[in-house]
Amino acid sequence: GDWICPDKKCGNVNFARRTSCNRCG
């Protein structure tokens, strides 16, 4: 399913099809 970026500065939910965090950094 969808997953949350492990980066504390991010924390946005990513679609399951993504293999990396979206809009992190």
Results as ranks from 00 to 15, higher is better:
13 V>D: 05
7 D>W: 03
21 C>D: 07
18 R>D: 15
4 I>Q: 08
13 V>L: 06
5 C>K: 00
2 D>L: 00
24 C>F: 00
11 G>C: 06
21 C>P: 00
17 R>Q: 15
12 N>F: 10
14 N>R: 01
3 W>L: 06
1 G>C: 07
24 C>S: 03
3 W>D: 02
20 S>N: 13
25 G>W: 03
7 D>T: 02
3 W>E: 04
11 G>F: 06
11 G>W: 06
15 F>D: 14
7 D>P: 02
4 I>Y: 00
16 A>R: 07
13 V>Y: 10
13 V>H: 04
14 N>F: 01
11 G>D: 02
3 W>F: 08
21 C>V: 01
16 A>W: 13
19 T>R: 06
12 N>C: 04
23 R>H: 14
9 K>M: 15
23 R>W: 06
9 K>E: 09
25 G>T: 07
14 N>M: 04
21 C>F: 00
6 P>I: 13
6 P>M: 13
25 G>L: 05
5 C>H: 00
15 F>T: 12
19 T>A: 05
4 I>G: 04
17 R>T: 15
3 W>H: 09
12 N>L: 05
16 A>D: 12
17 R>S: 15
12 N>Y: 13
10 C>E: 02
6 P>L: 12
9 K>V: 07
17 R>M: 12
13 V>P: 15
6 P>N: 11
6 P>V: 05
11 G>R: 12
17 R>Y: 11
14 N>C: 03
7 D>S: 05
8 K>I: 12
13 V>G: 07
9 K>C: 05
22 N>V: 13
1 G>L: 08
24 C>W: 00
2 D>G: 05
20 S>T: 14
9 K>N: 10
18 R>N: 07
5 C>W: 00
7 D>L: 06
16 A>G: 11
5 C>Q: 00
12 N>S: 09
3 W>M: 09
24 C>D: 02
15 F>S: 14
24 C>P: 02
5 C>G: 01
4 I>L: 10
6 P>H: 08
14 N>Q: 04
22 N>S: 14
21 C>T: 01
2 D>S: 06
16 A>Q: 13
25 G>R: 04
13 V>C: 05
14 N>H: 02
11 G>L: 11
19 T>W: 05
11 G>P: 01
8 K>G: 13
21 C>K: 00
20 S>F: 08
7 D>C: 01
24 C>I: 00
2 D>F: 00
21 C>W: 00
5 C>D: 04
1 G>E: 13
16 A>N: 10
23 R>Q: 12
23 R>A: 12
4 I>P: 01
19 T>D: 13
6 P>D: 14
13 V>R: 09
4 I>W: 02
9 K>I: 08
15 F>I: 15
16 A>E: 13
15 F>G: 14
10 C>S: 05
23 R>G: 14
4 I>F: 07
22 N>I: 11
24 C>M: 02
8 K>Q: 06
10 C>L: 01
16 A>V: 08
2 D>P: 00
16 A>L: 08
17 R>C: 07
11 G>K: 01
17 R>F: 13
3 W>G: 02
24 C>R: 00
7 D>I: 03
9 K>H: 12
15 F>E: 15
1 G>F: 07
15 F>K: 14
1 G>S: 09
6 P>F: 08
2 D>Q: 05
2 D>M: 10
19 T>H: 09
14 N>A: 02
13 V>I: 11
23 R>D: 14
25 G>Y: 02
9 K>S: 10
7 D>M: 04
20 S>H: 13
2 D>N: 12
3 W>S: 08
21 C>S: 01
22 N>M: 15
17 R>L: 10
4 I>M: 08
19 T>Y: 07
8 K>Y: 07
3 W>R: 06
2 D>W: 03
18 R>G: 13
8 K>P: 08
23 R>T: 10
21 C>A: 02
11 G>Q: 13
3 W>T: 06
12 N>I: 06
6 P>C: 07
12 N>E: 13
15 F>M: 14
21 C>R: 01
8 K>L: 06
18 R>A: 15
8 K>W: 09
23 R>M: 08
10 C>M: 04
16 A>F: 12
14 N>I: 02
23 R>L: 13
13 V>E: 07
4 I>N: 05
9 K>Q: 11
15 F>C: 11
8 K>T: 11
15 F>P: 12
25 G>S: 07
11 G>I: 03
7 D>A: 06
11 G>H: 05
1 G>W: 01
10 C>Y: 02
1 G>Q: 09
23 R>P: 03
18 R>E: 14
15 F>Y: 15
17 R>D: 10
15 F>Q: 11
15 F>N: 15
15 F>W: 08
25 G>M: 06
18 R>M: 15
22 N>C: 06
3 W>V: 00
2 D>V: 00
19 T>E: 05
12 N>V: 04
11 G>S: 12
19 T>I: 09
13 V>W: 07
10 C>D: 06
22 N>W: 11
14 N>L: 02
14 N>S: 04
4 I>R: 06
10 C>Q: 04
20 S>V: 08
4 I>S: 05
13 V>T: 14
24 C>T: 03
12 N>R: 07
10 C>A: 03
5 C>P: 02
24 C>N: 03
1 G>K: 12
19 T>K: 10
18 R>F: 14
19 T>V: 08
13 V>N: 09
23 R>Y: 05
18 R>H: 12
14 N>G: 02
17 R>A: 15
11 G>A: 14
10 C>W: 00
